[in-house]
Computed example of a mutant assay.
Amino acid sequence: MLELEFPCSRCGACCRHVYRAEETRFLNRGDGICRHYDINSKLCSIYETRPLICRVQKQFYLNYKDQFTWNEFIELNQMACRILEALD
C-alpha cells in the first residue's frame, strides 16, 4: 500500500461540523464540534489515536479506492472542506 498524504490545511472545518455526517455524529460534544478538537490550537487533541473515520488515507483504502483515484478522492474531499468552511 502506498503511503498517500492528504493535503489538509488544518482549518478545522470538518471538526467543527461533526454533527452533519452520520459517521461522525458520535464525536459531537453537544454543539456540533468534535469533543477532541482544541479550538485554541485548531488541532486534534488525540490526533495519533483519532478514530478511523478521521483518517482520510485509511478511509480511501478501505472504502473508496475501487471507486475513485487518489486524486479524485482528494478533489472530492477538498470540495467538502470548502463547503464546510463556507458555513462558518
Rank of each mutant, 00 (worst) to 15 (best):
T24H: 06
Y37N: 03
A13Q: 08
P7D: 02
T24R: 12
R35A: 01
T24Q: 07
K42H: 08
G30T: 09
M1H: 10
E23R: 15
E22R: 14
T24M: 08
Y47R: 09
M79G: 03
C81Y: 07
C54D: 11
M79F: 02
T69V: 08
L62P: 07
Y64I: 04
V18E: 02
A21D: 14
Q78W: 08
Q67F: 10
A86T: 03
Y61Q: 12
D38G: 10
F26P: 06
F73M: 05
Q78M: 15
I39C: 06
L4D: 03
C15P: 05
D38C: 12
I74A: 10
Q57C: 07
D66K: 15
M79Y: 02
C11F: 04
A80V: 06
L76I: 13
E22Y: 11
L84A: 06
G12T: 04
E48I: 00
N77W: 12
F60K: 04
N28M: 03
P7F: 00
I74M: 09
F68Q: 02
R25N: 04
Y64D: 08
L27T: 02
S9R: 12
C8I: 04
L2R: 11
R16S: 01
L87Q: 04
T24C: 07
I46F: 02
D38E: 15
L87W: 00
R50M: 08
L84Y: 10
D31H: 06
R29S: 13
I74E: 09
I33S: 08
R25I: 06
N63T: 11
T49V: 09
N28K: 00
L52E: 15
Y61D: 13
R35C: 05
I33N: 07
C14E: 05
R35E: 14
C81L: 08
C15Y: 01
F6H: 04
L62G: 09
C34G: 05
Q59I: 08
R50P: 07
T69C: 06
N28V: 01
L52Y: 10
Y37D: 03
S45P: 01
A86F: 01
N71H: 15
P51K: 09
V18W: 01
D66I: 04
A80H: 08
F26Q: 10
E72L: 13
T69G: 05
K65S: 14
I74S: 09
C34W: 01
E75W: 06
Q78K: 15
T49H: 04
N63P: 02
S9F: 05
N77Y: 11
Q57K: 14
G32N: 07
F73D: 03
K65W: 10
I83Q: 11
F73Q: 05
K65G: 00
C11L: 09
G32A: 05
R25K: 15
Y47L: 09
E5K: 15
D38V: 07
M79R: 13
R35H: 10
C15F: 02
E75A: 13
L2D: 11
L27K: 01
H36K: 12
E75S: 14
M79K: 13
L2Q: 11
E23I: 14
C15I: 03
L62T: 11
Y19K: 11
C11A: 09
V56Y: 12
W70S: 03
F26H: 15
E85R: 11
F6W: 09
C44H: 08
N40G: 01
W70R: 04
L43G: 00
G32C: 06
H17N: 14
